[in-house]
Write a protein that binds this DNA or RNA. Structure first.
Lengths: 216, 216
DNA sequence: ATTTATTTAGACGATCGGTCTAATATGACC
DNA sequence: GGTCATATTAGACCGATCGTCTAAATAAAT
């Protein structure tokens, strides 16, 4: 169960200051964030009402505004969390020196692909979704989304540099550019996969991307 | 001036059946479609209110529902029109036998890029935008969007086949797959270009795409 | 002159995001 | 163990905006 999964069992929700024991009990704030990621990756920011999110986890509106100042603040928290989640995923795969560099990238891709399959290709990438919606979003999101892409891209670039050092790709390969290309295309592939409820676009992108890497 | 440009001069708009002379006068329905494309490529479907569109061209709400049954019908008309517009653009470039096949594709890309530049990279692709939003859109759009992609992809595949026949790409290149890859990546690039208000993503995608094509 | 076709004006109910106050529960302190 | 402070939920409420619909107005057709 990843952080994106909304809890099924509704925790006993009582008025008043909660008991000290945080045993097992998922906090309300955490539930809201999970439900938010689920809703926004499916339907986007504008199409998702607060009541949507609240309804998924049985949290009343009053609680929402206790934990977040506004929908805008909430969205910013979601971007932050989603960015960090995938940064961790990237780091985990890229640090796996048991695999050669390109295989590490492939492993990340398989992981991400499995993530989409888990939700029957009905959820896309939060960052890509919000990017597409920027025209109607708080302007502050633009920089935040850019930073997430820069971070993800930097990690892929490092992995590609390792591949270059290992002789898996050409010695004169522009790894930063290739990493940018990867994320540009990957987001496009996620978009299509979600549209078609199918992994086909992910597979095509992956195969052609690797085939097109400069080998020497 | 392309069909996406909304008319500035507000035509005299009076109640009642209009005079017969259709001289020069852009029809209300046409104005609505243009404004719709502009609004939806900027902000998406969910975030665009009817009042947004109506306000851009000074058409009252009552007129909208005279020409279209609903926002859903309107959206379908926009997809149809946008799909056909780019199909025409593709056909025009790909039929230009004065250029070798790959140069024709490049010419289309330059054309599309110029289209984004014209609006300061604030408008994306209607088809990509709606694809991303599908989770909250009328289900009927899914097939319609898929058909548009299939059409565009088929045209690019034909162009690539011409390139293969001309020896510009490898004889065993899978043109249909490459065409799918192109559109997957191009939509991703448009998304990023819009997010960053910059042509950088378009340029990176274009360059790496051509560099990665199988040459022999 | 009357009817019919076409278009606009604006009222309408539902819902939205966001705010607010009251109610309720525990923790901390004496 | 009584009191106050802190934390959380309940849900009414507001102005704005959503998409829809009906009635009014005007020209064409007869």
């Amino acid at each position: 169960m990843t952080f994106m999964d909304a809890m099924i069992t509704p925790p006993v929700r009582r008025r008043g200051r909660p008991p000290k024991n945080p045993e097992g009990r998922l906090e309300t704030r955490e539930l809201l964030l999970r439900a938010g990621v689920a809703a926004l990756t499916e339907k986007g920011f504008a199409a998702t009402g607060l009541d949507d999110i609240l309804g998924r986890v049985g949290v009343p509106k009053g609680s929402f505004y206790h934990y977040f100042d506004s929908k805008e603040t909430f969205g910013a928290a979601l971007i932050e969390r989603y960015g960090a989640y995938f940064a961790g995923k990237l780091a985990r795969h890229f640090d796996n020196t048991a695999l050669p560099p390109l295989a590490r990238l492939h492993a990340f891709i398989d992981d991400a692909k499995a993530g989409m399959a888990r939700y029957a290709y009905q959820r896309g990438c939060l960052i890509g979704n919000l990017g597409q919606e920027m025209g109607a979003l708080p302007e502050s999101y633009r920089a935040q989304l850019g930073e997430v892409f820069a971070d993800w891209q930097g990690r892929v670039a490092q992995c590609l540099e390792a591949a270059r050092a290992a002789g898996e790709i050409a010695a004169d390969a522009d790894c930063r550019r290739l990493a940018a290309f990867f994320w540009i295309g990957w987001e496009g592939a996620v978009l299509r996969a979600k549209l078609e409820h199918s992994p086909l676009a992910l597979d095509i992108f992956t195969e052609v991307f690797f085939a097109g890497l400069p080998r020497r």
